[in-house]
């Protein structure tokens, strides 16, 4: 299977700006380590059904992007961050952000579809292997207008 090309900050910015309808700033950042930090892990499968790619989002990016998608007020998102876990409705919205975000992988490498979302840690074995030795890794610090800053990392086999 061909390797995934590097995903660029500009591509991520354009996608989020169009999806959320807000000004977005994307800078290169430190990778999210979901084995140590409360985070949301999104898994993406390839056309053969195997684990191919991951998103690891800190709670701030997950909550803020989910809230911005459906215009949920900022305090609701901040409450989720403080609680250390996204409620079901925000998780559903964040899954949709990731679903649309799957196109970043699809324009850069093998075709993937969103598979699952889970609150971590602990990180399951399969995703853990990709995180330990990714074929492609992109780490972004992202600011969403009217919401705030958070971190998102993307990994592939």
């Amino acid at each position: 299977m061909p390797a995934t090309k590097q995903i660029e900050a500009q591509d991520c910015k354009i996608l989020l700006k169009n999806l959320l309808g807000r000004d977005i700033t994307v800078e290169t950042g430190d990778p999210v380590d979901p084995s140590k930090t409360p985070a949301v892990l999104i898994t993406f499968h390839n056309d053969e059904g195997g684990l191919q790619a991951l998103w690891a989002a800190d709670l701030r990016f997950a909550a803020f992007s989910a809230a911005a998608l459906t215009m949920v007020p900022l305090p609701v998102a901040e409450e989720a961050v403080s609680a250390g876990k996204l409620p079901e409705d925000l998780m559903d919205c964040f899954r949709e952000v990731a679903n649309v975000g799957s196109s970043l992988f699809n324009h850069a490498g093998p075709h993937v579809v969103l598979a699952d979302s889970l609150a971590v840690p602990p990180v399951p074995e399969g995703p853990g292997k990709i995180l330990a030795s990714p074929g492609m890794q992109a780490a972004f610090r992202i600011e969403i207008e009217d919401y705030g800053k958070g971190s998102l990392s993307m990994f592939t086999l």
């Binding site: 998608l69 459906t70 409705d89 559903d92 919205c93 899954r95 949709e96 679903n99």
Partner: peptide, 9 residues
Amino acid sequence: DSKAMRMIV
């Protein structure tokens, strides 16, 4: 399948 996306559409 996403209620959120149906709302956005």
